[in-house]
């Protein structure tokens, strides 16, 4: 009994340390706030934040904004990431098209996407389409580059194998290009979703009628710090949830991948 407990501790040692670090940080914060050593307006005690957070959540205070933010993240991800997936597969597969488009991608990719906001507003107006456009642009590049790299890293022998058995272009796509790049596509989805979330919150902060970014900015402007911390908590939970669901998707879609890498 004692032994198995010891084994458990040994196995999850790092996770326990992580947890202890977080709890320790919150505990110090709590004590400082209660003792009045830090401003209670700017740093309300974590316990107070949590109580209000759950109360507000239960009362549905953030529900509408969460839905708005979520739908922006997903529409931008689907439009930008989806088109990047198609283009990335084409650019990875066709050397000729890659040679034509690669310099353009290389020139556009390093631009901080947020800097495009004024231009996007000029093109799409002050409305929802501008916000979605920004999120799409943010999702586009990480997805494009991951997908292209995913196709390029496929072992050339696999193409020879399938060609040797008389595969058509479609066969090659279905049997080699798509499954071979899938691990990188899922990696790209992860980066693209993160980028979409960043852009959504940012855009909502500077020009939003609703959404979590808007709530965040309003709460800072009106000094409602518990709201601000609550939104930060929600955003980080959303980010964590997206990463976690992609990890599960990975185990389901590419069961052959994890062990391949550990075996090498």
């Amino acid at each position: 009994m004692k032994n198995s407990l010891r084994k458990m501790i040994a196995r999850y040692r790092e996770n326990l340390i992580t947890l202890a670090l977080i709890l320790g940080f919150l505990l110090i914060w709590e004590l400082l706030a209660r003792a009045g050593l830090v401003s209670r307006i700017i740093f309300p005690a974590p316990s107070r934040i949590l109580v209000l957070f759950f109360a507000n959540l239960a009362a549905g205070k953030y529900t509408r904004d969460m839905i708005v933010t979520f739908s922006r993240v997903f529409s931008g991800f689907l439009i930008g990431g989806g088109s990047a997936l198609v283009l990335g597969l084409i650019m990875g597969w066709s050397t000729r098209i890659r040679r034509v488009l690669d310099p353009i991608v290389a020139a556009l990719h390093p631009i901080p996407k947020f800097a495009l906001l004024p231009m996007v507003i000029i093109l799409f107006g002050i409305g929802e389409s501008s916000r979605i456009a920004m999120v799409s642009i943010g999702s586009f590049f990480p997805m494009l580059i991951s997908t292209m790299v995913g196709v390029l890293q496929i072992n050339p022998t696999y193409y020879e194998v399938i060609e040797n058995y008389g595969a058509s272009r479609l066969d090659t796509f279905r049997k080699v290009v798509l499954p071979g790049s899938l691990p990188f596509i899922i990696g790209g989805m992860r980066l693209a979703l993160k980028s979409a979330l960043t852009l959504t919150i940012g855009v909502e902060m500077v020009f939003g009628n609703s959404g979590l970014g808007r709530v965040l900015w309003l709460s800072w402007e009106t000094m409602r710090m518990t709201d601000m911390y609550s939104v930060l908590l929600i955003v980080s939970i959303i980010g964590f949830g997206l990463t976690w669901s992609l990890e599960s998707l990975k185990k389901f879609l590419i069961p052959w991948h994890q062990e391949v890498r550990s075996a090498e």
């Binding site: 020879e160 194998v161 080699v176 499954p179």
Partner: peptide, 15 residues
Amino acid sequence: SAVIVFQDQGLLPWL
């Protein structure tokens, strides 16, 4: 029909 048997890497890892 001429089929190659490769030294290794001849199997598709995802199948």
